[in-house]
Write a protein that binds this DNA or RNA. Structure first.
Lengths: 346, 346
DNA sequence: CTGAAAGCGCTAACAA
DNA sequence: TTGTTAGCGCTTTCAG
């Protein structure tokens, strides 16, 4: 009943061989005769032998495992990134250990420790938004464990073994606004969340710069700070629709998709048409953007690509060893504008 | 540069103590003087000591880790369940190792092996839908590693150390239909996917039984097999709306939310009102159900609860040891009907 | 081609 | 209260 697992020693005894031979046979070492390998493999099968990775990792000093730490594992974005990470890691022969910080700096700390204790060979992390100090990454740096930030990074983190991959929010916003202008919009509103968050700050800047680049004026009343959810979008849109006709926007770029849906609903409730009277574009390419009527244009953040790139980066660092000094230059992914019905005017 | 991690032995040497004392001090063993503990802890801090869990686990024969295997880590359902699992596991002091099978039986096999090799103390798994044979669980059973299936289980898996937690799809469907009847619907249609999948089979049966229980006739033309996505729902609904007025449904229960959205759109396109002319209810409580107009009623599957329950079950098995024989009686969670606008008639 | 022996870092008898 | 010792299961020199 208390079925102890078969070990190499067990196999060795049963076959009258030494543990070393068994070990070599199982890892298909060239120095072992085919005959022996065959016997070993067969017995291993029969005895349901399972190698003990803990022991192997301890002995080798390499765990073959990567650690992943995300703020949460629900929602739209992170599961996709994690999927990209897991897929690429598997391809490269790594196992993956996934933790979530629940957006809490304390837990982030704990999880980093956990990953280190688990002897991961590298860590991929997206910061909790409450994280203000970075002491818990000190140990990672000290021990020279490769660290890749993705999406949310420490801006001024110095280290020879640190890297990052982020999405170019500015560029995404710039593309959106350029697109809206090409569709004939001349008064483009922007819904934004708190500007101390870099995603909103960068998207807002992209919005402003694109307007300027195309010779359009910047109308302060068209930048609306609102709750970035459906209700907030509705409220913000209603407010804009109350403006005198000449000041009313004919295009909306929302910093996220939920608020864009709210805007869409408000416009429809106002008996105006989307995209004819008001064109709307969101950000993130959430699942539901394909379900609205009209379907919502949005910006795809290439989540899987981000995960994949992050792992490749880590792999490179693992291979080449530490060699850089100073803060990392993050790899910046170009987002992809997806034009759907809500902003397509011809 | 090649910073080896500080070990217990290192601490011992530095302090002129034995490794065992260090070990005990670090784990706050009662037999160590407070003075010593303080010294040890301080040095550990200074040297950035990180315990090597691999070594500890190897020595103790307990890894303190649970394995989780899901078909995929994207979408709506599984991330929430995994979240429930991770949260509860953390509460009970377990680490969690998460794998995905990508709905592929081969990968499932590999992942099970991986988890076993990693010496997990228990495994939580939701089957890939291509899984037909269960040989890869043989090893798990052999070694008496507690196994908990969630959501998708092996119906006739016998074992003293196996358990399961599932959602009562039948009950959920029954609730939906009863609700629709209470709202005054008398001709209720059902959109279903392939009936060889138990989720659809059970929901369909719940639909039929609820009709019978309330004395309503079963109209075969009202069970529509369709692609369970938005397009499929639209097509199915249009087809139903072409029926002669007397045969047309005044209520729709869709086996998932996507098709329900499609139905909603088709009804609106037909200039009929929801819920007045046709009431609609979906299944799964996807995020977007709260974004439609009117908001879509649906059935919440208590994903987090499922994860939590699964872990608790595992914990119980771990504590009590194997004691049952024969196939497990799964724990069945009651789903929760969420009545929103699309089916609320007063 | 195979075996003997050492040791990865930690814990837990047992001894002092 | 602390130290000694042995060993978890595996890999890897080094010697046959």
């Amino acid at each position: 009943m208390a079925n102890r697992r078969a070990s190499i020693t067990d196999l060795a005894k049963t076959l009258g061989l030494s543990p070393s031979t068994i070990s070599r046979a199982l890892s298909d070492h060239a120095d072992v005769s085919e005959a022996t390998k065959a016997r070993v493999r067969q017995l291993a099968e029969e005895m349901h032998y399972q190698p003990n990775q803990l022991a192997a990792a301890l002995r080798r000093g390499r765990s073959n495992t990567l650690g992943v730490l995300v703020p949460h594992i629900t929602g739209h974005f992170f599961p996709l990134v994690v999927n990209g990470i897991a897929t690429e890691a598997a391809k490269l022969g790594f196992n993956v250990m996934i933790c979530q910080s629940n957006e809490d700096a304390r837990q982030e700390q704990k999880n980093i420790d956990l990953l280190m204790n688990s002897q991961v060979e590298g860590i991929l992390v997206s910061l909790a938004n409450t994280t203000q100090s970075f002491g818990h990454f000190e140990a990672v740096r000290q021990q020279n464990i490769p660290l890749v930030f993705f999406d949310r990074m420490v801006e001024d983190f110095e280290g020879s073994n640190v890297s990052a991959v982020v999405i170019d929010d500015y560029q995404g916003a710039y593309q959106v606004v350029t697109h809206l202008i090409e569709q004939g919009c001349t008064r483009i509103a922007h819904f934004t969340g708190p500007l101390h968050l870099s995603i909103h700050k960068n998207r807002h800047q992209g919005y402003l710069d694109a307007l300027v680049a195309h010779g359009l004026p910047i109308a302060p009343e068209l930048t609306v700070h609102c709750e970035m959810n459906q209700k907030g979008g509705q409220t913000a849109m209603r407010q804009l629709l109350r403006l005198p006709a000449a000041q009313r926007p004919d295009g909306v770029f929302s910093s996220n998709d939920l608020a864009a849906v709210g805007a869409l609903q408000a416009v429809k409730a106002h008996r105006l048409r989307v995209p004819k009277d008001v064109a709307i574009v969101g950000f993130s390419n959430e699942v539901f953007t394909a379900l609205t009527e009209p379907m919502l244009s949005s910006v795809d953040q290439r989540c899987e690509q981000m995960g994949k790139t992050a792992v490749q980066l880590l792999q490179k660092m693992l291979k080449s060893g530490p060699n850089r000094v100073g803060p990392p230059k993050p790899i910046v992914l170009k987002p992809k504008l997806l034009v759907r019905e809500s902003s397509q005017r011809r």
